[in-house]
């Protein structure tokens, strides 16, 4: 057992992933404080999904180490997986199962006590009541996202990892989801790691933003400090500076 005494909820130490000659994640190190919401930003191929994969032990690092709640994910993942959960639009729930059946199955996998009560509560909180007994594959995109979030919250995780949680949602549903995440963090002191391409979402939710480019961390600060340092009005402009190497990002690169 490799127990880390660090108070960080998630800690990466020189985390690296190579696929043959290509380096997807290049010796990144960071610590994410318990109870915080951290945004992981970067263009396509920046290494966000691979980093998330390594945090969840879906991807084995080439070198370096990642620990969650003090447990090394390479060796002790099963000591902490029951305290984590994940949601992504690129991962589905079985389509033919009803929402209730899917949540019952995952409740069983996570050892949730009184799972039907938990489902009833989630159905109320996430407004699933109208379709909780409908097949998951027959739901609209917005309904599916809410169900995926319900699955991610079934075990009331201490660590919640979200990969583009509001992708392809209408503004109203997306706003509603963000509000729910804010309440969940506040009520449970949960740590949330959020990969998103929606800069408004990141600005609203995140205490801190880690910006990645070509497998490296190129910036890491609070949204307010990033805006100030880059001299920009919003995170989208900061993102473009980092992605294109313009503005403050160009100056920093030159220095």
């Amino acid at each position: 057992m490799n127990v880390n005494v660090s108070p960080a909820a998630i800690e990466a130490d020189r985390l690296t992933k190579r696929y043959g000659e290509a380096t997807a994640v290049d010796a990144i190190s960071f610590q994410i404080a318990a109870g915080s919401i951290t945004g992981l930003l970067g263009g396509n191929g920046a290494g966000k999904t691979t980093t998330i994969g390594m945090i969840m032990s879906l991807v084995a690092p080439t070198s370096g180490r990642v620990s969650v709640l003090g447990f090394d994910m390479a060796h002790d993942a099963y000591r902490v997986l029951h305290r984590m959960n994940f949601e992504s639009p690129y991962v589905d729930l079985p389509h033919r199962l009803t929402v209730r059946q899917n949540l019952t199955v995952f409740g069983g996998l996570y050892g949730v006590k009184n799972v039907q009560e938990r489902i009833a509560r989630l159905a109320t909180e996430l407004d699933l009541k109208d379709f909780v007994d409908r097949a998951s594959g027959k739901l609209s995109a917005g309904q599916k996202t809410r169900v995926a979030l319900a699955k991610a919250l079934i075990n009331e995780p201490d660590i919640l990892i979200l990969d583009e949680p509001t992708a392809s949602l209408d503004p109203d549903t997306a706003d509603w989801i963000r509000g729910h995440l804010e309440r969940y963090r506040a009520n449970n002191n949960a740590t949330i790691l959020l990969a998103s391409h929606n800069m408004g979402e990141v600005e609203r939710l995140c205490d801190r933003v880690i910006m990645m480019k070509r497998g490296k961390i190129v910036d890491d600060d609070s949204p307010a400090k990033l805006l100030s340092r880059y001299g920009r009005q919003n995170l989208e402009e900061v993102f473009l500076d980092v992605a294109r190497g313009t503005g403050a990002a160009k100056k920093e690169a030159a220095e």
Binding site: M56, S57, F86, Y90, L93, G111
Partner: peptide, 18 residues
Amino acid sequence: LEEMWSRNLANLMISPLR
């Protein structure tokens, strides 16, 4: 294969299921 077809495998692999 049902887990592969339904793209559910990652959900299972990050769960406590051994």
